[in-house]
Nucleic acid binder design. Structure first.
Lengths: 335, 335
DNA sequence: ATGAAGCACGAAATGGGTTTCGAAGTTTTA
DNA sequence: TAAAACTTCGAAACCCATTTCGTGCTTCAT
């Protein structure tokens, strides 16, 4: 490995001057710069980031703390879309992305310790269970953070406009003539599950629809099976709903499967509307009508927020991203 | 930030002894160790990994070089499954995962430079186009690498048993009575596309089936659209195939869509068999019969291979992972 | 001619650890 | 009781880059 000392010896200039030339300082003559740069290139000089980070305190690394309940990790199609967008944006601004896990070098460390040990500049927190002790510790620290799909008065956060999303779903079903609308909600210990359940109920009110407790079913952690099982419960009811709004697309697909299994049809007998707009919506039969969360924008803005915070330009930001209704084939006017 | 020098002052022992106590050296008395460890914990000491890496040359970081043609990055359901499995396994062994992008701190760097600058211990290469100049540079270096879904005589590699996978697909279709079997292949400038095309042809021979050139269609980079367009070409043929083997599940779903659009049915009119066993197979209609690639095993073994190489236990490994036929609803005996 | 200003460069401190080797002090052995 | 063998500890070198501050030299204005 070539170091600035090697270049120093080779050119006769001091390591100081070499460093300055490499960093384009103005107090090095153009001639000297050229000599040093040429020699550095000849010798295949590559800077050692750890030495630099040690003294500059800036690692050009952003941590990604990702922990979700389904235990499918990167396979999660909603979160990985956000991560992809975040990654692209953060990389284009010169940062590298490092996964923050709990163990490092075999020793037990907390998330916060891990961030400090690695000297990362900031961290994006993507988690469905923000009540985790270690995450709370991180949020309460003064480490630059941005929370995805959560709210918190100590840290920056970004999430979709679920108020409007739920309203759009109910409005659409209402406009198709549906009055008996059920909701398969995401687990109440997730932020999204909670908010969407509340906003579903609020939206019902706006259309003067009654809140019927049996039409509110827990679909767990947004999984296919959760939606399937929840739908089965709904199908046992005497008075079936004519439409079901699920808090996530996977649950919607599961619900459709339960409905088909019962011998009913979607959307002829029951309309289904999902939430997320995962790729899968286009491939299932019927193609799923849903509320689209703009993962590109969420990821991009999360990057902006975090980097602004790292650069001390902005202290804290709360951002809400628009959603939209995507009409496909899983909803139909009531007969 | 507490340093070993702070602990040194607070306890009266030299920084050397503090460092040794923290690292459990045997030439520090038990009593001294206890005093130092206690004080370190009191003072909230957290080691600085950059200082340590600078001298030990071991960063406990593994790079992930991920570059695929569809430009969907982490959203790619096959690659992200491998990454997830790889991630879990390297993390459990104390390594952190860092994405290797091309730009670092705003300066243009190659993949290899990036790896060296960051001082990572090894890198996993997941790419659909291994002929990229920068990737070749990396492969030709002596940096510890493991290639996913590729083969190379200079570096370790791991991929599925495509020879058997293609045979299984053809055998299954043959056993259902199909004799006119088409293949939608993945782009020839991908490893998987190439191998599967060749092995499809080889498998035909094994069953004494003729190779018909019109039945071999390029499906591009394994996308839905690629499969859709390729299938459209097949459907223009006078003598339609009774079964189609696609080199990837996405292409299979696209193909099904084209068949339906034409007014034909799957599997009644045309049987379709995919490759990969993505989650989506379970959710499309008809549920997709496919060849399952074991992403868990690929990721896990890639981790083992790479870490063994980093630890200098093994120089180079080529590994092939078994595949299996997963029968669902998209194939049917010929009428 | 002289003091001031500007330019080009380098010595040395800094960041936070690890590791080698030597030196005391203590215990064991002959 | 002297020599040998352990224990326990620390000085100092090292890893590789950055940055402050000072120095010598040249150029300019007076």
């Amino acid at each position: 490995m070539t170091t600035i000392y090697d270049i120093s010896k080779a050119t006769g200039f001091s390591p100081t001057t070499v460093s300055k030339a490499l960093n384009d300082y103005s107090d090095v003559s153009e001639k000297t710069k050229q000599i040093i740069l040429k020699k550095a290139s000849e010798m295949g000089y590559i800077p050692n980031s750890h030495a630099r980070i040690l003294i500059t305190k800036k690692s050009w690394t952003i941590g990604i703390l990702f922990d979700e309940k389904l235990n499918i990790g990167m396979k999660h199609p909603y979160f990985n879309a956000i991560i992809e967008s975040f990654k692209e944006n953060v990389e284009s601004r010169g940062y590298d992305l490092l996964f923050i896990s709990k163990d490092l070098g075999g020793n037990r460390t907390t998330y916060l310790d891990h961030c400090i040990i690695r000297g990362i500049d900031g961290v994006i927190i993507i988690t469905s269970h923000p009540n985790n002790e270690q995450i709370i510790e991180l949020i309460n620290s003064d480490f630059p953070c941005v929370l995805i799909d959560n709210e918190c008065n100590r840290k920056s956060s970004i999430h979709s406009d679920d108020v409007r999303g739920c309203y759009l779903a109910v409005e659409y079903l209402y406009s198709l003539g549906h009055r008996k609308i059920a909701h398969i909600y995401g687990s109440k210990d997730t932020f999204a599950g909670n908010v969407r359940l509340n906003e579903f109920i609020n939206s019902l009110k706006k259309f003067n629809l009654p809140k019927i407790d049996e039409y509110l079913v827990d679909g767990g952690y947004f999984s296919f099976d959760g939606g399937y099982n929840a739908m089965k419960k709904l199908l046992e009811l005497e008075d079936l709903p004519t439409a079901v709004f699920t808090a996530g697309d996977f649950m919607a697909v599961g619900a459709i499967s339960a409905i088909k299994e019962k011998g009913l049809r979607v959307p002829e007998d029951i309309s289904i509307i999902g939430y997320d707009d995962l790729d899968i919506c286009k491939y299932v039969t019927p193609r799923l009508t849903t509320i689209k969360q703009n993962t590109d924008l969420i990821g991009k803005n999360a990057a902006d927020i975090l980097i602004n915070e790292i650069d001390k330009k902005i202290c804290r930001t709360s951002m809400i991203i628009p959603v939209e209704l995507v009409v496909r084939d899983s909803c139909k006017p009531i007969k």
